[in-house]
Design a binder for these strands. Structure first.
Lengths: 224, 224
DNA sequence: CGAGCCGGTAACTAAACAGTTACTTGATGG
DNA sequence: CCATCAAGTAACTGTTTAGTTACCGGCTCG
């Protein structure tokens, strides 16, 4: 049938092998990471498809396994990158340079707006917690990333207590968890909430009201 | 080989077919629902295995498909049941019978403790939101279940405003979302939070402190 | 200048999975 | 005592999926 069978030993259909546009390992790596972030965020660890990630990245599975080992290591990489991004942006805030009250307000606003602009981060957190931090626990890069946040927040609170504007019982971890709670729940659960309460929570008006609410609640809970 | 081959037409290995303990359709149905709740809560919609549900329930896939149609319908049933349970328990609180301040405090305590005792409910909410309420949206049973909650909460707030203990801007949906946020985030994200902050959030002492914090924050945000 | 390596492709494989089918058992009513 | 039906079992099927393998082609360096 095939008239050009010169190599009889191993004859496998030889495809045109396409034009290899340009080789760019860095770009390919970054594209896989970006595609994986989207895929894991949309479908969770169990629901994400390796083929889908490769296709989204405009490459193929071979490269994905070449750069990242396997699905689990790729997932952990995505998760670490997401944490590094938010903590880096947060650090640039320098909440200690304003008055204590403004500092806390700034942190609340930043956190809310970051969550709003990075829904994939919230999704990844949800997925990782469904699995009881199974992968995050293995990460060695992330422990020290967070002590800085608590340290800075602690300083601002102490300053406020000395100035007499914050109550003595204000605790840095509690303050951060309060801010994160109010932002996270509203956004990550917006779909079920909008459904059961028959009210679209994501309209600009409602988002704005909730932003003001977060700042109000956070400050009301620590002001003397 | 087989010496008792009297029926030559259809000869398939005939297993002993075990002792059929007792037939109890209701029990089987309930067992499947309970097993499915656990499996979906632990593994999400994509990660849950139909075989695993059948095994957990002490039955088999045939019965599961017989009673519930398919995996998606079973999942929706589990989700609906979870909502009905919490709203039913909540309704029994009758927060309107106490003083407004006590009423809100009661609701906050109840919500926190219910979340604490029903981690599977939080998991299911997380899973459903990952999928943008794809299945919940199809449910017709759940819309009216929630208007009652907001109505009752609204009454309590009005009463408090008249009595001069609550601020005028207090909004029933915002108050409920505040309570739910603080409970949900702390528990559902406990694994990543404990990991990144290097502090076990689930010890009795920490749980107790957060319970008091929720009541404090909720009331501080609406008191005049 | 050619050997081998690096970036890349596509087809293949073994396992897992949702859903189906063929069949069994025992209770009930005629 | 037999026809029927509900409850239940287990093996099978077609598809999907993570991971692998065989192969390709241009660049670099000895």
């Amino acid at each position: 049938m095939n008239d050009t069978g010169e190599s009889a030993k191993k004859k496998i259909k030889r495809p045109p092998a396409e034009r290899t546009a340009q080789r760019d390992p860095e770009r390919t790596r970054a594209a896989i990471l970006e595609a994986a972030t989207q895929e894991f965020a949309e479908n969770g660890m169990g629901g994400a498809r390796v083929d889908a990630i490769a296709e989204r990245a405009g490459t193929n599975k071979r490269m994905l396994y070449h750069y990242f080992g396997d699905k689990e290591q790729l997932y952990l990489r995505v998760l670490e990158e997401a944490y590094v991004s938010i903590r880096t942006a947060e650090r640039a805030l320098n909440i200690g340079t304003r008055s204590p009250e403004e500092g806390i307000g700034e942190l609340a606003l930043f956190t809310w707006r970051y969550f709003l602009q990075h829904p994939e981060f919230l999704s990844l957190l949800g997925t990782e917690n469904l699995h009881r931090a199974r992968w995050l626990r293995q990460s060695v890069r992330l422990k020290e990333l967070h002590s800085h946040l608590i340290g800075e927040l602690s300083q601002v609170l102490e300053e406020g207590k000395k100035a007499g504007v914050f109550i003595e019982s204000a605790d840095p971890l509690h303050v951060y968890l309060t801010i994160a709670s109010l932002g996270y729940f509203y956004l990550s659960n917006q779909y079920t909430l909008s459904t059961i309460f028959g009210r679209d929570l994501i309209t600009p008006g409602n988002l704005d009201a909730w932003e003001r609410h977060i700042v109000h609640v956070t400050l009301a809970s620590i002001k003397r």
